[in-house]
Design a protein around this nucleic acid. Structure first.
Lengths: 192, 192
DNA sequence: CCCAATCGACAACGCACGTTTCACTTCGGC
DNA sequence: GCCGAAGTGAAACGTGCGTTGTCGATTGGG
């Protein structure tokens, strides 16, 4: 019933590269199959549907993103720098793969509006994981206000990713500057 | 060659409501036609293609958004309040129409990745108009730094809209707070 | 009142895409 | 070397959708 790991990897590689750079709806299953060098039957034996393939690709990307993020946080110094390291991770992640011109989860959320429970669940899981990790880092910078700070930073990061959707070459400098202002405002004036 | 104005309006009403709430690709032309109470032939006599209909709906929405935004700016007091009025306008715009649960232009950008010149042009035009109007308002708050401030606020607004994509009921409070911090940081420390 | 423009109803075409099936071949552990 | 699992290649199906065409009814300005 299963499929060989190398085959599965090739399929997910192709799915990631095509779905998340050209768009999910705009990429036919045939294109993924051709890119992976796999037959139609093989794909449908490994994944029940296109949607399942999309969800699997999203989940694998989520795990890869966490690894990149963790590495950037570990490389940072102060608590504030560890919090801002998410922008380094964003840059690293984009540099590593062509398909990360913009956020796959943002794109998936925009394409699958109210439908597709499997994909929607992956998007929700990503957002939640993101928020929780931000809160953990924010607690070291602004104890007691980590919820507020994390929510604000989540908005800044989403804004950066949304800007990238229109202009994929956009640097993270503006986002970093905004994030810095937010951290300063919350950390320096905790009574605000 | 033309079409009666009332017919065109009904078509654009239906297009806006369906395309921008359910998604463009997920909405067949038939659905728009049915909703507008119009025949297939009539629609294709007025618009050469689905893409043209989408572009026309985007352009009309752009104009409506500008009206809402202007009204909110005029209702505001100080220069800083006039700059922050964009969030009031965002709330007003969403309250006025169901289809404004999230940003139509953000959604269109996500769905039409590299293709569709007509739609892409409308998205670019919206982003540019947005930036220019923000710069004009920002010039009164932080003279000489209006480009920097406008770019930051554009990011904050995009972030708010992206968050709404995942949770359409999200209020603009967080975005407003972040925007306030950005304005304070740039206006109070112009040498930064 | 008339005529031309506009519109509605409906059928049809063509195509692209997701999915299934089938007959056959290759791979890999026992 | 055997045998089941995994993969190939190609064809086919069903369907949904964008688009076109026809034709009779409706409309509205001169």
């Amino acid at each position: 019933m299963g499929m060989r790991e190398s085959t599965r990897d090739r399929m997910l590689d192709a799915a990631e590269e095509l779905f998340f750079s050209r768009g999910i709806a705009a990429t036919p299953v045939d294109a993924v199959i051709a890119r992976a060098g796999v037959s139609t039957a093989t794909m449908y034996r490994g994944f029940p549907s296109k949607e399942a393939l999309v969800a699997a690709a999203l989940e694998r990307r989520e795990r890869a993103w966490i690894v990149t993020w963790d590495a950037a946080v570990d490389a940072a110094g102060s608590e504030a720098e560890r919090l801002l390291a998410v922008f380094d991770a964003l840059d690293d992640f984009r540099a590593e793969r062509d398909s990360a011109r913009w956020c796959a989860f943002l794109g998936a959320a925009a394409e699958h509006v109210d439908a597709d429970e499997e994909v929607a669940a992956a998007v929700r899981a990503d957002t939640e994981a993101f928020r929780i990790r931000l809160e953990r880092l924010a607690a070291d910078v602004a104890p007691g206000l980590e919820h507020e700070l994390a929510e604000s930073l989540l908005l800044v990061i989403s804004g950066h990713l949304a800007m990238r959707l229109r202009d994929p070459s956009q640097s993270s400098a503006t986002a970093r500057r905004v994030a810095h202002a937010v951290i300063a405002a919350i950390a320096q004036a905790p009574a605000l």
